[in-house]
Amino acid sequence: MNTNFIKKFLYGDYGEIKAGGPSSAKKTEWPLWEIFIRSKQGLDHKHVGSLHAADAQMAIENARDVYTRRMEGVSIWVVESKNIHASNPDEAEALYDPANDKVYRHPTFYDLPDELKHM
């Protein structure tokens, strides 16, 4: 398999900047941060986007201004993008396929009489 022409640009969304494509970013550019927001107590933090900031404190403050102007959140997580490691979409098949043939993991696999209640 010739993968030479598969260019990868691992910026933004899924981090790993250092492993990424051509970067013309000068040293002066603030690092990139991925922003996760909990919209309501009881819910998970969800990825909402990214932004640049000099440090974590500033990333949180900017995230408040950029992503929660309409009360979209009650809690913010920031993670520097380069610290996020992602699975490779080219390996998706091998990675997720084994789950396909294990239908017995689903409750609908089991054939039980209709009289059986509360199960």
């Binding site: 640009f9 910026y11 933004g12 970067s23 970013a25 550019e29 990139l32 640049h52």
Partner: peptide, 12 residues
């Protein structure tokens, strides 16, 4: 940010 995911930097 969306454009940056395609491999261009903000400064660029």
């Amino acid at each position: 940010s969306a454009a940056e995911t395609l491999g261009i930097s903000r400064e660029e």
